[in-house]
Amino acid sequence: MSRLTLLLLSLSLHAGWAGSFFLTDFLHELPTPATGPQFDTSVPDNLTSLVGKEAELNCRVKNLGNRTVSWVRHRDIHLLTVGRYTYTSDQRFEAVHSPHSEDWMLRIRYPQKKDSGVYECQISTTPPIGHQVYLNIVEPRSEILGGPDIFIDAGSTINLTCLVTYPPDPPPDMVWTHNGKVISFDSPRGGVSLVTEKGAATTSRLLIQKAVPTDTGLYTCTPSNVAPDSARVHVLSDQTPAAMQHSDASPQPRGLHVQVLLLLLLLAASAVC
């Protein structure tokens, strides 16, 4: 026990009842030895949020005492909040804290992809200590795997997989089109089927059996709540590659070889004569 505490204890014993209350209040305010503010590292520090959907970064601090908590954006070392006050002109950012709570949150309304990056929660100790939180702002997208050009042998099965990532909700509907026309699964063409698996990432698989040249064209996958994606399918017949090879072969070298051979024969004949 320090000399100051012993002195106050002696004074309180002489001062009586009132002094005891003063001593109790004083000791309550004294910092606990070897104890200071600490970050609760069990709180997630790697967050993913959708474009336009409100994001909250939480910093939980224990034994804060009379220190303050601030949020700083690493990209431009910009001070965003101090305590319960917001220090940026960007009104999308807001400091959120409930009285007697250990949580100090940074709320971002209508986040954009440029808001992705590292944010640091800082405590005003000497020197300041900080805890970093990484925020990744993503936007929903669809992608036909293997695109934009897919080559299929005639007679084989066309297998197109559309992957939908980060949708706000699993797409209620998945529409496939071929050259702008909705693909019908009960058309006379036959052999067309669709398998869709919904979840955090949704996959939709279009299967077209026994591909023929007329199946060539632009295929588009359109989820009902995400932007579409397209891929162009090329159905190759057995004759097409061979025909292309023959057409690529130039007759000029063969004609040149014949001319050289005739010239040699003429020279040989003249030598005999």
Results as ranks from 00 to 15, higher is better:
residue 130 G to F: 11
residue 202 T to A: 06
residue 241 P to W: 01
residue 199 G to P: 00
residue 165 T to M: 11
residue 157 T to M: 14
residue 185 F to I: 09
residue 212 V to N: 09
residue 156 S to R: 13
residue 242 A to Q: 15
residue 143 E to H: 09
residue 155 G to F: 14
residue 138 V to K: 03
residue 148 P to R: 13
residue 215 D to I: 02
residue 131 H to Y: 12
residue 183 I to P: 01
residue 211 A to R: 05
residue 245 Q to K: 15
residue 204 S to Q: 02
residue 155 G to N: 02
residue 194 L to R: 10
residue 215 D to C: 02
residue 190 G to H: 09
residue 251 P to Q: 11
residue 170 P to T: 00
residue 146 G to F: 03
residue 181 K to A: 05
residue 204 S to Y: 00
residue 163 L to V: 10
residue 223 P to V: 05
residue 220 T to Q: 09
residue 199 G to D: 01
residue 198 K to L: 00
residue 167 P to F: 00
residue 226 V to E: 04
residue 169 D to H: 13
residue 149 D to A: 12
residue 244 M to S: 12
residue 245 Q to M: 14
residue 150 I to G: 09
residue 211 A to P: 03
residue 183 I to Q: 02
residue 216 T to R: 07
residue 213 P to A: 06
residue 232 R to F: 08
residue 163 L to G: 01
residue 186 D to T: 13
residue 147 G to R: 06
residue 239 Q to F: 14
residue 161 T to E: 04
residue 179 N to Y: 10
residue 144 I to Y: 01
residue 158 I to F: 10
residue 205 R to V: 09
residue 250 S to L: 08
residue 214 T to N: 05
residue 177 T to H: 03
residue 190 G to A: 08
residue 138 V to R: 03
residue 178 H to F: 00
residue 244 M to E: 15
residue 137 I to F: 08
residue 143 E to L: 12
residue 218 L to S: 10
residue 241 P to H: 02
residue 136 N to H: 13
residue 244 M to V: 14
residue 212 V to A: 07
residue 149 D to C: 04
residue 151 F to L: 11
residue 251 P to F: 10
residue 187 S to R: 11
residue 178 H to E: 03
residue 148 P to M: 09
residue 166 Y to V: 08
residue 209 Q to E: 15
residue 183 I to W: 03
residue 249 A to E: 15
residue 244 M to P: 06
residue 215 D to K: 06
residue 191 G to E: 08
residue 194 L to V: 12
residue 235 V to F: 04
residue 241 P to K: 04
residue 152 I to R: 03
residue 246 H to N: 14
residue 217 G to K: 00
residue 166 Y to R: 12
residue 164 V to P: 00
residue 233 V to L: 06
residue 163 L to W: 03
residue 240 T to E: 15
residue 245 Q to P: 04
residue 131 H to D: 09
residue 216 T to S: 09
residue 245 Q to C: 11
residue 159 N to R: 14
residue 171 P to V: 02
residue 221 C to Y: 01
residue 182 V to A: 08
residue 168 P to A: 10
residue 249 A to C: 12
residue 148 P to Q: 11
residue 224 S to P: 02
residue 168 P to W: 02
residue 185 F to M: 12
residue 239 Q to Y: 14
residue 214 T to R: 07
residue 228 P to L: 05
residue 195 V to K: 13
residue 242 A to S: 15
residue 208 I to G: 05
residue 189 R to P: 01
residue 233 V to T: 05
residue 212 V to L: 11
residue 249 A to D: 13
residue 215 D to N: 05
residue 198 K to P: 01
residue 177 T to G: 00
residue 191 G to M: 07
residue 184 S to D: 15
residue 145 L to C: 07
residue 225 N to M: 01
residue 241 P to S: 01
residue 186 D to Y: 10
residue 164 V to I: 06
residue 250 S to I: 04
residue 153 D to M: 15
residue 184 S to F: 10
residue 224 S to R: 02
residue 167 P to S: 00
residue 201 A to W: 04
residue 227 A to M: 15
residue 156 S to W: 12
residue 196 T to M: 09
residue 163 L to P: 04
residue 138 V to C: 04
residue 239 Q to S: 15
residue 191 G to C: 07
residue 141 R to D: 13
residue 206 L to S: 11
residue 137 I to D: 07
residue 224 S to D: 05
residue 193 S to D: 13
